[in-house]
Amino acid sequence: MRFMVFVRSSGPLAALHGDELLRAGVLLDAGDFVPDSCGISGFWLIDVRDHEEAVERMKRIALPACVVEIRQVAVV
């Protein structure tokens, strides 16, 4: 299953480091969004077996104060 993980922060957010996801073989894509009035954000696209694994993987990544949103992506 694919999940898009959005990370949003009102303050400075260092470029998203997905090394742990890369080493685990689950990272498909990553990117930073252009900063806007809502703050700074980026995303990871990950391929894991289920939602629980997506949540557990995110818990293991050290992030500054931010909002993390995990959404399943349909593969058409």
Partner: peptide, 17 residues
């Protein structure tokens, strides 16, 4: 598909190792 996914994941892990 679950076997394909697992093999892909193992391959990607190996590529980093």
């Amino acid at each position: 598909p679950e076997l394909c996914a697992e093999a892909l994941r193992l391959g990607r892990v190996l590529a980093e190792l």
